[in-house]
């Protein structure tokens, strides 16, 4: 990672974004453990670099479609963290009024269109948005973010084929953390690098260290540029580490001692301190401010009213 070509302000922004995501996920875990968030909570600790790096290379009117572990991308895009936390907690002030929850966040105003609870289910949706983007002629791009578990699904391959065939402005962003739900990737396929599939379909591909936010940013920026220029889709595979288990309540695959060395936020923070781009005190302050913002968001979310009973049957159909 070279930080020399990036302005200090930008480096600082990355650290702020990553700490905000980390603080949000830590708080969500804590609230979940207290029983104030229900359901299946899939946290993205360890994936902050992909989300921050990708968001920094995209425009507000670009489309992002997340999977079941997508808080990080929604935050990086700029979704309101109070409304997000309220949505996780099922409150009326949530992004989706409590009807979506952790796996179905939606903030279209910042380009986080929606997320899906079905592995790979967001890929065809992003493909359709890429078609809309091409037809609208405003040089927008559409991105599907998915894990390595999605690579064995049929729609993954069908979507790669169509995106390539029609040269759609689409990004396939793979967070390859080596685990598909509870199983290691090696239980599901002999193909270790999902980007290999892109080769067959003629889609330009790159595999980067997902723990290097600047490498992610560069790879996504190149893919975005290609898409905006009408040159079709790209596949960016980010090798990452999922620091928590598949969902809260499940054990992490890593030993406690291992986690620090695989932690993208700590790695980036250390790097900036070592290179002299940021003082240790400044880094500490960034983390503290992130936690303070999240604390306030969580308080507001948990103080918010529950949805009214009549909301069960509203918005089933658009009227």
């Amino acid at each position: 990672m070279t930080t020399s070509e990036v302005s200090r302000d930008d480096l600082r922004s990355f650290l702020e974004s990553m700490w905000l995501i980390r603080a949000f996920e830590e708080k969500a875990a804590e609230i979940y453990a207290r029983g104030k968030i229900n359901g299946l909570l899939h946290l993205g600790m360890g994936l902050e670099g992909v989300a921050s790096g990708a968001a920094s290379a995209m425009r507000r009117d670009d489309y992002v479609f997340g999977g079941h572990r997508a808080h990080a991308h929604a935050i990086a895009r700029g979704a309101d963290i109070t409304s997000m936390m309220a949505e996780l907690a099922g409150r009326s002030t949530g992004l989706c009024g409590g009807k979506g929850g952790t796996m179905h966040l939606s903030a279209p105003d910042v380009g986080f269109v929606t997320a899906t609870g079905v592995v790979a289910g967001n890929i065809p949706l992003a493909l359709g948005a890429a078609l809309s983007a091409r037809e609208a002629g405003r040089e927008q791009v559409s991105a599907a973010v998915f894990g390595d578990g999605a690579g064995q699904a049929g729609v993954f391959h069908e979507s790669l084929n169509i995106a390539s065939l029609w040269k759609l402005p689409m990004l396939f962003i793979c967070e390859n953390n080596g685990y598909a739900e509870f199983s290691p990737l090696s239980d599901h396929t002999l193909v270790e690098r999902l980007s290999e599939y892109a080769k067959t379909y003629g889609v330009p591909r790159v595999t980067v260290d997902g723990n290097d936010v600047l490498a992610v940013r560069d790879a996504i920026a190149e893919a975005v540029q290609r898409a905006r220029a009408g040159k079709g889709p790209s596949f960016v595979e980010c090798l990452t580490h999922r620091l928590r288990g598949h969902y809260e309540g499940k054990k992490s695959e890593y030993e406690r001692s291992e986690i620090d060395s695989k932690d993208v936020v700590r790695i980036f923070e250390r790097k900036l301190i070592e290179s002299g781009d940021i003082l240790r005190d400044e880094a500490t302050e960034i983390a503290r401010l992130a936690r303070e913002r999240v604390e306030q968001a969580a308080k507001a979310a948990l103080d918010a009213p529950w949805p009214q009973a009549d909301q069960v049957t509203t918005q089933v159909l658009s009227t």
Partner: peptide, 26 residues
Amino acid sequence: ESRVINTPISEATIVGMAVGAAITGL
């Protein structure tokens, strides 16, 4: 052909693609 689009025989994906297009302006 930009408005009448021939798709591959990939029903799972073309249904989803149509949904994705529908939620983004088409």
